[in-house]
Write a protein that binds this DNA or RNA. Structure first.
Length: 797
DNA sequence: GTAGGGTTAG
């Protein structure tokens, strides 16, 4: 057992070590933790410079949570400590917390560096306006700007300024700023402003001419100046210009090479990039971390997986150990390479071997899990993460939404705002997808309104998500208006809009839009054909479906996969063309899977084709024994022809297999609509209130005759479950409730987590005809619009 | 204690 003195001595020894190590060194964090721990254990109160040093290590190793704990223990943190923490917050994207520290700092504790840190934070996080606002405040508070201030403010200006004229004004302002002789660092920043304004995305290419003029007139050019010019030309799609500047450099250093390589990569000249990569080495110019990072990420994004692996091997062979901490970003790029090629486990190996990781590393793996659909692993990995930034949350929100966890996605979206993160356009995209999954139309509308307010509504991915959301929530007009208002659309937008029309039963319109897409020169993909075939299914367009199915391969070289075949089977079966359905199943290159058999079984039920239906069901019992839909369809098929003993057998089999029956439901009233959600938990408070109405509604329903007579309700379950009939089919109850309580003409909407059953489908059709009201139902698979006894999805789903 | 060029997570 050591005594306090020993502990203090050890602590002091660590402290001395800590002074020597670089804050970026991976070992420094654990060292700092050890020192800190010893100090706490010994009751030793570190002060002043030493505390700041500890704080710096925590911050620079991206451990901002520890940093904050330490900061809060400092009795009166000075400007240095505050600056350090603000910088760490802005590096992790949490400006709000940084600004809190800033605002809580009295004027007498502030200095120029302190202001600079906050301005830089804003500018790094793309918030140019706040940076400029702070710059004004700084001058109002009488602090003198220095070179750091000017360079940061200039880079912030790029974010809010779009044209060359404004660049020119800035140029004059900088020259006039009283500094007489403008320092070369400020001139470099100015050059960078011109160059960024000149990028094709940001309007003016004549800004490049001005940039060139400034460049030619600069009294002193350093490596940074040259590299800025090279990237300027690259961004302006002028590879020759870039090359010319590069060639005219007397001494070409690494960064310039990297800029050229990156230029080639961005213009798809991958071979050129690799040639330069090799040439560097042959001329004796060291590849550095950035070179490797660029080349590997190029391979990852350009689909050159094999070359990427070769570079990896090359690093392992020639370049020491990639586990060295300097190669953090290289390892990060490697992770992306493996994730993009669906080898998350390989990426995870790289991750596990890394001595130092940062937020990028963690986010890369997280998105790897998410993109591979491995949502459970993504969830637990997310929980493990101590440090999260905007991107972490965004990835997780989209991941949850895309994998059916809409409620969790929306919850996280709300939480991120409470935690001080301002959601970006991608985060909104995820949240809208979550609404889409949940059928949460009102929530989606609110988000849409916020997006318009923020100016994000013209963003491509946001627009695409909105189209799907409105379509899946049954508001086709809104989906259409989003599509039409988008300044740019891509294949995903077309696919989403074609799907929207198809979902609503407008098969012909969907095909028209598809033709228009082709006329616009957009090349379809497998999803496009899937949506077109689905549209044909919903509208019963058999000949058209066959046409597009063959067109897909013949004209576009896309081989049909499982889902395409399933659509075709569906299409034929609905039309009663069973020999065609069987025929197409026989031509499949691989063994048919569950989607194909499901389509066959559903079709057999419509036409009471028992023999074929049983065959399909047997296949399904082998492939997906836990899937409830098979049992329900099969028993319904028997019920339709009055074979009640077989119904009971199927139900018993289902119970023996431990397959859950449909869950109960809950409902909410929103304005003039009734929304119904099915939940797994029948003690859900909303379900309880449904039960409260049950008796009354039962009477009413009988009296009004809205629900077809008993066969439809009762044949779906075993005798002993009859008393629960209404709760397992409670969407009918809810609709009846809606029809009674809502004003005439209001639409009734029903949302369900599972597929609605055939009986409810029939009931809805019946109700829509008898009471002359439109009923909108959405389940996990489809959208149904009932009107005058017909449904948009055809005879059956 | 704070940047400015080349790079890594959607």
């Amino acid at each position: 057992m050591r005594n306090a003195l020993d502990i203090r001595m050890v602590a002091n020894r660590y402290a001395a070590k800590l002074q020597l190590c670089s804050p970026q060194d991976p070992a420094s964090f654990s060292l700092a933790r050890a020192v800190h721990g010893h100090m706490i254990a010994s009751g030793f109160k570190p002060r002043g410079h030493f505390l700041n040093r500890l704080l710096e290590v925590y911050c620079k190793s991206s451990n901002v949570v520890y940093a904050r704990q330490l900061f809060d223990e400092i009795p009166s943190p000075d400007a240095i400590a505050r600056t350090t923490l603000i910088t760490a917050y802005s590096a992790s994207g949490n400006l709000k917390l940084g600004r809190e520290i800033f605002n809580g700092t009295p004027l007498h504790l502030r200095d120029t560096v302190f202001y600079n840190a906050m301005i830089i934070g804003y500018s790094h996080n793309d918030d140019g306006l706040s940076a400029l606002e702070l710059f004004r405040a700084m001058r109002r508070d009488d602090f003198r700007p220095d070179d750091f201030t000017f360079t940061s403010v200039l880079s912030a200006l790029v974010l809010v300024v779009g044209n060359e004229q404004q660049c020119g004004q800035m140029h004059c302002a900088v020259v006039k700023s009283g500094m007489g002789c403008v320092s070369s660092s400020v001139l470099n920043a100015l050059l960078s402003v011109y160059v960024k304004c000149a990028s094709p995305l940001a309007i003016s290419s004549s800004a490049m001419v001005s940039a060139r003029k400034l460049f030619d007139e600069m009294p002193k050019r350093d490596e940074l100046t040259w590299t800025t010019m090279i990237t300027g030309y690259v961004r302006n799609d002028d590879l020759n210009g870039a090359r010319e500047v590069f060639e005219s450099m007397a001494e070409k250093l690494g960064a310039a090479w990297n800029a050229m390589i990156s230029g080639y990569v961005h213009h798809g000249c991958f071979q050129e990039a690799l040639i330069m990569f090799r040439k560097m080495r042959s001329l004796g110019i060291q590849h550095d971390e950035v070179t490797y990072t660029t080349v590997i990420s190029a391979c990852a994004n350009g689909g050159f997986f094999q070359q990427g692996k070769q570079v990896h091997a090359y690093i392992l062979k020639n370049e020491l150990n990639p586990n060295h901490n300097l190669l953090l970003s290289v390892n990060n790029a490697l992770i992306t390479l493996y994730c993009k090629n669906d080898i998350v486990d390989e990426a995870r190996k790289v991750f596990d071997q890394m001595p130092l990781r940062n937020i990028v590393t963690w986010n890369a793996i997280l998105s790897g899990y998410v993109n591979a659909g491995r949502i459970e692993e993504a969830k637990s990995f997310f929980e493990e993460m101590l440090e999260k930034n905007l991107l972490t949350l965004t990835v997780m929100i989209s991941g949850l939404a895309q994998n059916g966890f809409g409620d969790e996605g929306l919850k996280l979206f709300k939480q991120m705002r409470l935690d001080g993160f301002e959601p970006c356009d991608y985060a909104y995209t995820g949240a809208i997808t979550a609404c889409s999954v949940l059928g949460a139309l009102e929530n989606g509308r609110q988000l849409h309104a916020q997006l318009v307010h923020l100016g994000y509504n013209s963003n491509l991915s946001v627009g695409n998500a909105l189209i799907s959301m409105y379509a899946r929530c049954g508001v086709l007009e809104a989906a259409e208006s989003v599509f039409l208002s988008m300044p740019f659309v891509d294949l995903v937008s077309w696919n989403a809009m074609i799907a929207a029309l198809g979902q609503h039963g407008y098969g012909a319109k969907a095909i028209q839009l598809f033709d228009q897409m082709l006329k616009n020169g957009v090349f379809p993909d497998r999803i496009t054909f899937l949506t077109v075939l689905t549209a044909c299914c919903h509208a019963g367009l058999v000949e058209e479906g066959r046409h597009y199915f063959s067109l897909m391969f013949e004209n576009y070289g896309i081989s049909p996969d499982e889902d395409h075949y399933a659509r075709m089977v569906d299409l034929f079966c609905r039309a009663g063309m069973f020999s065609y359905a069987k025929n197409i199943i026989n031509t499949m290159p691989s063994k048919p899977g569950a989607p194909v058999w499901e389509a066959l079984l559903a079709g057999c039920r419509i036409h009471s084709n028992l023999d074929l239906g049983i065959e399909a069901a047997e296949q399904l019992f082998e492939l997906t024994p836990q899937h409830d839909g098979t049992y329900v369809l099969l028993s319904n098929m028997y019920a339709d022809v009055g074979r009640w003993n077989d119904v009971a057998k199927v139900r018993k089999l289902m119970r023996d297999q431990g397959v859950q029956k449909e869950p109960a439901c809950s409902w909410i009233e929103v304005e003039n609509e009734v929304h119904v959600f099915l939940v797994d938990d029948d003690v859900h408070p909303e379900v309880v209130s449904v039960y409260r109405y049950l008796e009354e509604l039962g009477l009413e329903m009988k009296k009004l005759g809205y629900v077809p007579d008993t066969k439809y309700v009762l044949h779906d379950m075993e005798c002993e479950q009859k008393e629960h009939a209404l709760s397992t089919h409670s969407e009918k109850v809810a609709v009846a409730f809606g029809l009674m309580k809502l004003p005439p003409g209001a639409t009734v909407r029903v949302f369900k987590n599972l597929r609605i059953c055939g009986d409810c489908h029939n009931a809805f059709k019946f109700m829509s005809k008898v009471v002359k009201r439109e009923i909108i139902v959405r389940d996990r698979k489809r959208f149904h619009h009932f009107k005058n006894g017909e449904c948009s999805c055809g005879n059956y789903w």
